[in-house]
Design a protein around this nucleic acid. Structure first.
Lengths: 220, 220
DNA sequence: GAGGCTAGTGTCAGCGACTGACAATTGACA
DNA sequence: TGTCAATTGTCAGTCGCTGACACTAGCCTC
């Protein structure tokens, strides 16, 4: 088994299909157990047993227990990145990021559904935010995505990311905002996709103002 | 043993002093081993043995292996937070954060030295940034600090953090910038405190411009 | 300053995440 | 059909971490 968790070429050999099925089954069982019993109270043995493979096989598909928890996020991350590369070249950096985020929310459902039911994805998001070990990994993964985004922004603007700090700066500010929105969403009542989309748009529209000057009565 | 890792009341009983010495010795030995051999290649047994206590005792001082790695950061974090609360009330949010960051760099040396030699602190920072498991925890800790900062900003401005997103927004953008600066520093040649201070100031002065409009020749 | 109290430590047993090694199975392909 | 290589299971072992229990050593009282 190599690094072939990418999209599925229609069918390929029996071996390939079997591997994909096993992997998908592991992801689904894992997320179900995580959301039902909690991440910490789920052992790798349980996950493996639910799919009827050995623990050793589990670790041949996933480097560690955390990795299976992020299998679905992985899909949406690359979805968002792709949305950015698809934005018109003329757009300003922050506008492009904003556009990509909103585009992504519109089409993310399909991208996820192939792997797990959407509601499972949603519930898993809450588990991640409320499990310290997973939250930590989530933040690291986000940082890695940010790096890719910054490089893409630099490319769009024809800048050298090693010498010009601005690409990383916008991305850092941008995703700080995204995180705030995501957190409010996962803590709030309305856990629908639409709610998340709206929260994101709303907060992005207020960064500029929030960064300058005083807030009390006067300015802004 | 309770939660008494705070500052040292001059001497207290023998018991107290002994505990503090053990704790400090564990931190120092741990950081030395981490920076010399790497975090992953250092076992808790080795750390405990270096201080001549049992592994079980190590885990009575630190909840886990990660915690000892962040003992020094803990000191600087609260140092920075204190610097923020000391800023004049009239200052605008971003200005106060900027001021606190620069104030903190000026006096952070002393705060750290009591625990470990400064160069060990510096080298440990690099280890954290380059060790995935530690980087993840670092980011989570940072997120927690951000939450405290946001609450303090809200307090200064007399806002309700539950309903007004702006405190979290500035802090998110602000610390995104800090992180970019910190990373460039830990990757760069000049690993001095001054270099970090300068990088921080420089980047903070450029967020505003970076967030608005296009960058190429034209505007800005 | 002897004796009791209790905080702090060591030892031991055990769980769960993870890994290397090796043998058994099973697609793939000539 | 037989060979080759990819997948998998089994086993043994390391490391992080925890509960239980016994022991030691400061501390405090009489």
């Amino acid at each position: 088994m190599t690094t072939d968790q990418a999209v599925a070429p229609p069918s390929a050999g029996l071996r390939e299909r079997k591997k994909r099925r096993t992997r998908a089954a592991l992801v689904r069982s894992a997320l179900e157990l995580f959301t039902r019993n909690g991440y910490d109270h789920t052992t790798v043995d349980e996950i493996a047993e639910a799919v009827d493979v050995s623990q050793r096989t589990f670790f041949r598909y996933f480097a560690n227990k955390e990795e299976v928890a992020f299998a679905a996020q992985e899909a949406t991350d690359s979805h968002f990145f792709a949305a950015l590369t698809a934005r018109p070249a003329g757009e300003a950096p922050l506008a492009a990021l904003r556009g990509a985020a909103l585009d992504a929310w519109d089409t993310i459902g399909e991208a996820v559904t192939e792997l797990v039911p959407p509601d499972l994805y949603m519930r898993m998001y809450s588990v991640i935010e409320s499990t310290p070990a997973l939250l930590a990994v989530h933040l690291r993964r986000t940082a890695e995505l940010e790096e890719r985004l910054a490089r893409e922004i630099a490319r769009r603007e024809g800048l050298d990311i090693e010498t010009d700090p601005r690409p990383r700066l916008v991305v850092a500010a941008f995703s700080g905002v995204i995180r705030v929105a995501g957190r409010l969403w996962s803590e709030g009542e309305d856990t629908s996709m639409e709610a998340l989309r709206e929260l994101t748009a709303f907060h992005l529209d207020h960064v500029g103002a929030a960064l300058t000057g005083h807030w009390s009565e006067r300015q802004e």
